[in-house]
Amino acid sequence: MKLKDTIHRDFPKNLLIVLIILALLFISVINTGVDLMEVFRNSDQMWRFLSRFLKPDFSYFPNIIKPMIQTIKMSIYGTFLGVITGLPIAFLGSMIFTKNKTITNIAKFIMGVVRTIPSLLLAAILVAIFGIGEFTGVMTIAIFTFGMTSQLFYQAIDTIEVGAVEAQESVGANKIKVAFYAILPQIVNQIASYTLYAFEVNIRASTVLGYVGAGGIGLIMNTSLGLMRYDRVSLVILTIFVLVFIVDGLSGYLRRKLS
């Protein structure tokens, strides 16, 4: 730490930062019409919700087994599609593979745009296009996974050891051979571990996807919410909890084995 980094010399700068943050907060408070008293005035609503929520309706469990399996299937299928499509574009997004700035930038742009679309909005649009159903959920998960994993894959490719690539190129290997024999073996562990991670995220997101009619366990949650059966909502959330816990443990075990 140099002298100029000490708190006294930095005081005007820090004051400016604090003022900017305060100004942003002030504008936000005015714009959003925050009224904290409202929370306390209507807190009985919250207690009514919580009191029902805390007593999960376990007798309903047999009805959610099928949608749960549906959700798992959708997640597997969607993750698979997303990874299969995300991998090639991740290759195109890495200078190590393409050696061409234009292609790399186009690929990066596509990845960036897909990644910024929130998954719920994506689901809503796909439901409007494809209609309500399981396959719509699969498509949503696939596009979402594509955005998430392609980014991670391309970062993995960018950090590989370039020696192997150069060695193969020097003896005349073409792009496809370089991809399969020089790059892929170096990142295969990362691919597996990111795929598992994406699968976890997708199972978690399934609650939300059902909200717009994309099938699976989220659909049950949505109808229960509509009927104000909060005891069933809490059962669904609990089930997803357990599911995520199991998937978490399983993928943690596999990832440990892989590394």
Partner: peptide, 25 residues
């Protein structure tokens, strides 16, 4: 952390009424 944001939003829309404040909470 366990509850999805959407659930919180639904609860708070009930508590403070629909509007940006529910989203903030």
């Amino acid at each position: 952390r366990a509850f999805p944001e959407l659930i919180y939003a639904i609860i708070f829309v009930k508590v403070v009424g629909p509007g940006p404040f529910a989203g903030v909470l």
